[in-house]
Design a protein around this nucleic acid. Structure first.
Lengths: 112, 112
DNA sequence: CATTGATACAACCATACGGTTGTATAACTG
DNA sequence: CAGTTATACAACCGTATGGTTGTATCAATG
């Protein structure tokens, strides 16, 4: 699953809020509806609802209707997409170290 | 290195912008000053300078004076801190699967 | 079908964000 | 030390964000 820049903007933007990260964590167990989630935070139901909407737009959670509730569930693939980008940066870093090492040993390699 | 919620806010917030992610990527090689970085983007020098400041405040890059330039360098530890949080979420997910599996096999275990 | 419970959505407010221009400071160079 | 280069910072502007309250929809229940 290949992500575009604006999708990453949404994803990291969604993760840049403590309440939303906590919702992601809680929604891993996929047990609570929005009203239940809202009970954990010192803000209105509507505010939490907006947070969930932002997470949903970012692809980090989905909502599933169960009875009259809508249970919020974390989307593992979304989390993985974000993590993979950070992995890529670390790979680039490693590549840089490799290039530096190669540069240092170049003398040896070209003049054995 | 243990991070607090507001630090993660800054970190993910900093990553929630395409230009800033690109600066992080470029700064892995730690070769360019701010003016050189600014050359890559369709915006003013001051705008790029502000982006770098945001990345610096988030602990994702550092600046090192070299001559009259200030070379921007990505801070690997910052990237790792963000990645580790996402890793933790995935572990929680795995734990949930384990608990579910355990629950399912419980019948077998208790009545062999 | 009227009521209750859970969610959705619009309007509004204060503050933060991404960009601009302009001015000031630091460090090399002649 | 005068001039140039690279960076810093303040002021400003439009828009997005995080919160509020109020109203509307939708599903289960008596």
């Amino acid at each position: 699953m290949q992500m575009t820049a604006p999708e990453f903007d949404l994803m990291f933007g969604a993760l840049a809020d403590h309440t939303r990260r906590d919702i992601v964590r809680r929604a891993i167990d996929a047990e609570e509806g929005i009203a239940e989630l809202a009970g954990h935070y010192p803000m209105s139901f509507a505010a939490v609802q907006k947070h969930v909407a932002i997470l949903e737009r970012a692809g980090l959670v989905t909502k599933q209707r169960i009875g009259r509730r809508k249970v919020v569930r974390t989307n593992l693939e979304g989390l993985r997409a974000a993590r993979r980008l950070l992995d890529r940066y670390e790979e680039l870093w490693r590549g840089r170290i490799d290039r530096m090492t190669e540069l240092v040993s170049e003398g040896k390699e070209t003049h054995p």
